[in-house]
C-alpha cells in the first residue's frame, strides 16, 4: 500500500508512504486514490511529507485522480510538499489547480 489513511473530522488524510514518487509506483498510487474516491470520501487530503520527489508520471496520476474526484463531487487537497515538489507544481501550473496547504489541519480549516 502506498497510501496510509486516517480520518480527520469530515476528511480523509492519505499519507504517501514512499520516498520517491516515480513511474514505477504511479499506477498503484492512482488506483489507490481512485478507490478512496469511489468509496465515498468527499475530501481527501494527500500528505506528501515523506516524499522526496515526484516525477511527471506521478503528477499525471494525481491529475487523473482529481478529475475523477470532481466528477464524483469530491475534492482533493495536497499538504506537506517539500520545496522541490512545490516548485514542480508551480512549473506545470498545478498550483493553480490543487488546493495546497502546509498541514492537514490547515487543509481542514480551508475546506
Amino acid at each position: 500500500m502506498i497510501l496510509q489513511t486516517s480520518p480527520l473530522n469530515n476528511a480523509l488524510v492519505a499519507t504517501v508512504q514512499i520516498k520517491e514518487g516515480n513511474m514505477a509506483l504511479a499506477d498503484e498510487f492512482k488506483t489507490e486514490l481512485l478507490t478512496l474516491i469511489d468509496n465515498g470520501n468527499q475530501y481527501i487530503i494527500i500528505n506528501f511529507e515523506h516524499v522526496i520527489y515526484v516525477d511527471s508520471s506521478f503528477l499525471g496520476a494525481l491529475v487523473s485522480a482529481l478529475k475523477h474526484a470532481m466528477n464524483k463531487g469530491a475534492d482533493i487537497a495536497v499538504v506537506g510538499l517539500n520545496k522541490d515538489i512545490k516548485s514542480l507544481f508551480q512549473l506545470v501550473r498545478l498550483d493553480k489547480v490543487f488546493k495546497i496547504y502546509t498541514s492537514a489541519q490547515q487543509a481542514l480549516n480551508g475546506a
Binding site: 516525477d55 511527471s56 508520471s57 503528477l59 499525471g60 491529475v63 487523473s64 482529481l66 478529475k67 470532481m70 466528477n71 514542480l88 512549473l91 506545470v92 489547480v97
Partner: peptide, 13 residues
Amino acid sequence: VINGLNEHYGLMI
C-alpha cells in the same frame, strides 16, 4: 478546465 487538463508532463517539465 480541470477535466481538460493534460496528464502528460514529462517533456513539458
